[in-house]
Structure formats: C-alpha cells, structure tokens
Computed example of a mutant assay.
Amino acid sequence: MTPTVGRPPSRSRWSDLGRPPLNAALLRSALVWPDSLWTRLEVTESTGSTNADLVGAAREGRATAGTVLIAEEQTAGRGRLGRSWSAPPRSGLFFSVLLEPEPDVPGDHWGWLPLLAGVATASALSRAAGVDTALKWPNDLLVRVDGEERKAGGILAERTETYDGTRAVVLGVGLNVSLRADELPVPQAGSLALAGAANLDRDPLLRAVLRSLADWYSRWADSGGDPAISGIQSAYAAGCATLGRRVRALLPGEQELTGEASALDGEGRLVVVTDDGARHPVAAADIVHLREA
C-alpha cells in the first residue's frame, strides 16, 4: 500500500455547498500521468503545514520527486520569516510540491524557484480566474480590490534532502480564493473573490496552476536553471509590480534601504538604487511599496 503524507478527508464532500471540497480523483486523472512532472497527488482535509509535512515525508522516504500535497485547511501555514498564514477551510488553495533539480543545475540558480512559482501562478490565474495578478518581490501575489493592491497569496521555498541525500526543494503556495472581507486575516489582505474573479472553482484553478508550474519548471530545468535562457527573468520582470517603484527594503539585522527598485540581477536579487546613485543588490528583505509605478 502506498503510504500517505497527510490525513485523508473524512467529512462528507457535501457538508459545505458554498465551498465544496477538491475532487482528488479528477485532479489525479488530469495531472498525474506518464511523463508528467507530477507523480503523485494527495489531498488532506487539515494539516498544520503542507510544506512541513512534505519536507518530513521527503526526508523519511515517504515522498518522491513530483509529489503534490494539498490541504483543504492549514492550521499552521507559514510564510516568509516564520509568519503565519491562515484561512477558513476550503476557502483557498494551499499546497506544496517536491522537486529534485538535476545535479547539473547550479545551486545559485535555485533562488529562482520561488520567483518561477510566482510567474507560473500569476499567469495561470490570469487565464483561469480572469483576474490580473501582479508579483511583489520576492514571493507575494497581488490583486486589486477597490483600486488598492492587496496580497492574495504567497510562496515559500525550502531546501531539503531526501532520505538518500538527494538535493530537493519543497515549494509551497497559499492563495486566498473565496475569502470575504470579514474573513481576511488582516485588512491589507485580499482574495480572488474580492478582486472580482470570474471563476472561483478551485479544481480548475489548481489544475491551471500546477500545469503552469510544470511548464515553467521544465523550461528552467532544460536550460540548466539559467533564468535568461528559460525566460523566467524576463517574465518575472514583466509581471513584477515592485520594479520601477520607490521602495523601502527592510533588511536582516534591522537595517533598511530606501530607493528605486530598478532591476533583477542574474541571481534573482532586487537591485535598489538609493538617492546617492548607489546600486544595492538585495537577496532577502521585506519590501514596502512607497508609491505606484
């Protein structure tokens, strides 16, 4: 028997007609097939964090490359810098995937994977949900609600090793789909519903995102992880709401920079040009948008 990486759904699939559960069998038939990047797909009713579950399963040999773990609810979802991510059950898409880049992909190109996931998710949502989704460096998904930018999703990448020592990465995506204004975790958050999305059916949205992610990952892997050859660098720049903006970069160690976000360098770092004309490549920071592009 194939071991599972989460608990199977136990409640009736009709217990909440307003937010029906995902159809795991149909998702598998659409996404898991020979030569697909996705080799296994599991839907669990509730878990603390799909990223934590999948990292643990990979280390213990219970998950292999191409595994997709989806939760109807996350009770301890994590964002960057250890921040929590929570939402009502079945109100969004909360999933993680396990990837094992080939040995010929240099480790310094792995930093593009969360940016790649952002490009894949934003482009899929534009098509499948009919809503414009912008990218805030490094890993936030933005929508517009009443003319205001709101964070509707985020991406978290964690490097790990499998049980046999193979290098791997777990990419996690959290996306608010049907959240109403009174359900938002913070007033600055958003959702596809609040942004006026034409489609809130999570099954086709998830299929679109995973297909887009497989396509962009294949381009990246086939190019040896090169962001320019694969098109990731230009695609991210085209969809990035941060570039061209005046920003405040809150750096580790309680330091900060203020200036214009002018470019992405070859390692995926944000180049901030301060008022004295100095260029500062930023690898890790909280970015605050100070004005519109």
Rank of each mutant, 00 (worst) to 15 (best):
R59K: 13
V32Q: 03
P21E: 14
L206P: 04
R144C: 12
T166Q: 12
E73A: 06
V97F: 00
R245L: 02
V288G: 03
W110C: 00
P88D: 04
A168G: 12
L156R: 04
Q233P: 00
V143S: 06
P252I: 14
L41E: 11
T166G: 13
E256G: 08
E267A: 00
E161G: 04
Y217D: 03
E102K: 00
R7Q: 11
S15P: 03
R19L: 10
E73F: 03
S36R: 02
A278G: 09
A120D: 14
A249T: 02
I155D: 05
R245T: 04
S178R: 08
E260T: 02
A237G: 04
A263E: 15
R62P: 02
L41V: 14
L184S: 08
D104P: 00
R202Q: 10
A124W: 13
R78E: 10
L206N: 04
Y217R: 02
E158Q: 14
A152G: 11
D203T: 07
A157G: 06
L17Q: 06
G244W: 15
H289Y: 09
A197C: 09
K136M: 11
W33P: 01
P106K: 03
S178A: 12
Q188P: 01
G111C: 01
A168L: 10
G77E: 14
G66N: 10
A189E: 05
A228H: 13
E183M: 08
S230C: 06
R80N: 12
R279A: 15
P281C: 08
P227M: 02
S223R: 09
R211L: 14
P281D: 09
N199P: 01
G56N: 05
D286G: 12
L264D: 02
A293H: 06
S46M: 14
G225F: 09
R7A: 11
V186N: 03
D146K: 04
S230D: 03
R40I: 11
G82S: 10
L194S: 04
G268R: 01
L192V: 08
S123C: 04
R13T: 08
A65I: 00
E267T: 00
K151Y: 12
V273Y: 13
A87R: 07
G6A: 14
P101L: 02
A30C: 11
L200D: 15
I287E: 05
R291Q: 15
